Computed example of a mutant assay.
Amino acid sequence: MLREVAEKYYEQGYNCAEAMLRAGNEYYNLQLHDSDMRMVAAFGGGFQSGDICGALSGSACIISCKYIETKAHDNQEELKAITQKLMDTFEARMSSKLCSVIKPIYYTPEVKCRNTVGLSAEVLESVIHEFEEQK
C-alpha cells in the first residue's frame, strides 16, 4: 500500500510533500531522481506558511508525473478531472486543504504529521485506482 511507503519516507525525516513524492516515485515507478524530488521541499508545512497541505501538493505532483508526458495542455481534460477528484476527496477526508486547519487535527508530538501523510496516501491511491478503472 502507498500509505506504508509514504509513512516510511516521512519517518526518515522527509516533510509531507517530500515523503509523498518519494513514495509515489517508488510505488508507481515514476523514475524520478533525487534531484527531481528536491523541488517539492518548499511545499512542506503548507508552503512553509500553513497554506495548501504539503501532502496534497506532493500528491498532485505524483498525478502530474504519472499522467503527463509532455505538458498539461496536451492532456488537459484528463488532468483536470483527476486533479479535481484528488482535491475534492482530500478535502472531504481531511476536512480542509489547508495545513493550518489539518495540522491541529492530525498532528501529534509523537508522530508529527505521519497521520496526515498516511491518510493522504490512502486518498491518492484510491483516486488513482478509481481513475484507472474508469479509463
Results as ranks from 00 to 15, higher is better:
Met1Lys: 04
Met1Ala: 14
Leu2Ser: 01
Leu2Tyr: 02
Glu4Lys: 15
Gln12Trp: 13
Gly13Gln: 04
Gly13Ser: 01
Gly13Pro: 04
Tyr14Trp: 02
Tyr14Ser: 03
Asn15Ala: 08
Cys16Pro: 08
Cys16Met: 12
Ala17Asn: 01
Glu18Cys: 02
Glu18His: 07
Met20Ile: 11
Ala23Lys: 00
Ala23Arg: 00
Gly24Ala: 04
Asn25Leu: 02
Tyr27Ser: 01
Asn29Ile: 11
Asn29Glu: 13
Leu30Asp: 06
His33Arg: 15
Ser35Glu: 15
Ser35Arg: 15
Met37Cys: 05
Arg38Ala: 09
Met39Gly: 10
Val40Asp: 10
Ala41His: 08
Ala42Phe: 07
Gly44Cys: 04
Gly45His: 08
Gly46Asn: 09
Phe47Val: 13
Gln48Val: 13
Asp51Lys: 15
Ile52Arg: 02
Cys53Gln: 11
Gly54Leu: 08
Gly54Tyr: 08
Leu56Gln: 10
Leu56His: 08
Ser57Gln: 06
Ser57Leu: 05
Gly58Arg: 03
Gly58Met: 07
Ile63Val: 12
Ile63Met: 13
Ser64Glu: 12
Ser64Pro: 04
Lys71Ile: 14
Lys71Ala: 12
His73Tyr: 11
Asn75Gly: 07
Asn75Asp: 14
Gln76Asn: 08
Gln76His: 12
Glu77Ile: 12
Glu77Lys: 15
Leu79Trp: 11
Lys80Asn: 13
Lys80Trp: 09
Ala81Ile: 10
Ile82Leu: 05
Gln84Leu: 07
Lys85Phe: 06
Met87Leu: 11
Thr89Phe: 07
Glu91Ser: 06
Ala92Asn: 12
Arg93His: 14
Arg93Trp: 10
Arg93Asp: 13
Met94Glu: 08
Ser95Asp: 15
Ser96Val: 02
Lys97Trp: 14
Leu98Tyr: 13
Cys99Arg: 01
Ser100Phe: 10
Val101Ser: 14
Ile105Cys: 05
Tyr106Asn: 09
Tyr107Trp: 14
Thr108Gly: 03
Pro109Gln: 02
Val111Phe: 15
Lys112Asn: 09
Lys112His: 13
Cys113Asn: 06
Cys113Lys: 01
Cys113Phe: 10
Arg114Ser: 15
Asn115Gly: 08
Thr116Asp: 00
Thr116Phe: 12
Gly118Thr: 04
Leu119Ser: 14
Ala121Met: 05
Glu122Trp: 03
Val123Ile: 11
Val123His: 04
Leu124Met: 05
Glu125Pro: 00
Ser126Lys: 05
Val127Cys: 01
Ile128Met: 06
Ile128Val: 04
Glu130Gly: 02
Phe131Met: 01
Glu132Arg: 00
Glu132Pro: 02
Glu133Asp: 10
Gln134Leu: 09
Gln134Val: 06
Gln134Cys: 05
Lys135Leu: 11
Lys135Cys: 07
